[in-house]
Simulated scan of single mutants.
Amino acid sequence: MKKILFGTGNPAKLNAMRRRLSELDIEVLGLADMDREAPSPSEDGSTPLENARQKALCYYDFYQIPVFSCDSGLYFEDLPQELQPGIHVRTVGGKCLTDQEMLAYYGGLAEKYGNLRARYRNAVCLVMDREHIYEAMDDSTASEVFLITAVPYAGVRQKGFPLDSLSVSLGTGKYFYEMDRERTDHLAVEDGVLNFFRGLEL
Rank of each mutant, 00 (worst) to 15 (best):
E144V: 07
R20V: 10
S69T: 10
E190Y: 09
S46N: 05
F197D: 01
R19W: 12
D78H: 08
P80L: 08
M102F: 08
M17I: 10
F62T: 11
M17G: 09
P66N: 02
L126H: 07
A188S: 15
Y175G: 04
G171F: 10
L14N: 12
F62D: 07
G93M: 08
T91Q: 14
L194Q: 03
K112D: 04
D78A: 14
E131V: 00
S140L: 03
G199V: 07
P152D: 15
E82V: 02
G108H: 00
S69G: 06
P80H: 05
P80D: 14
S140N: 05
E27G: 00
R198I: 11
K159R: 15
G160D: 06
V168Y: 12
E101G: 12
N115V: 00
D180T: 14
V193C: 08
A142R: 01
D164K: 00
G108Y: 00
F197T: 01
V127S: 05
R90P: 00
F161P: 01
A16H: 09
F161Q: 03
G30L: 11
T8Q: 08
F176L: 13
M102Q: 13
D25F: 00
L49Y: 10
Y177Q: 13
Y59V: 09
E135R: 09
T141L: 11
C58P: 02
L83N: 03
Y105R: 01
F196M: 04
L49N: 12
A16C: 05
M17D: 11
V92S: 06
L57F: 09
S72T: 13
L31C: 12
A104P: 00
K95Y: 03
Y134H: 15
K159F: 08
L57E: 07
A118P: 04
R53G: 06
G30T: 15
T98R: 02
P162H: 01
P41W: 01
E101R: 08
M1I: 04
V127Y: 07
G30D: 14
R36S: 14
L79V: 03
K95F: 00
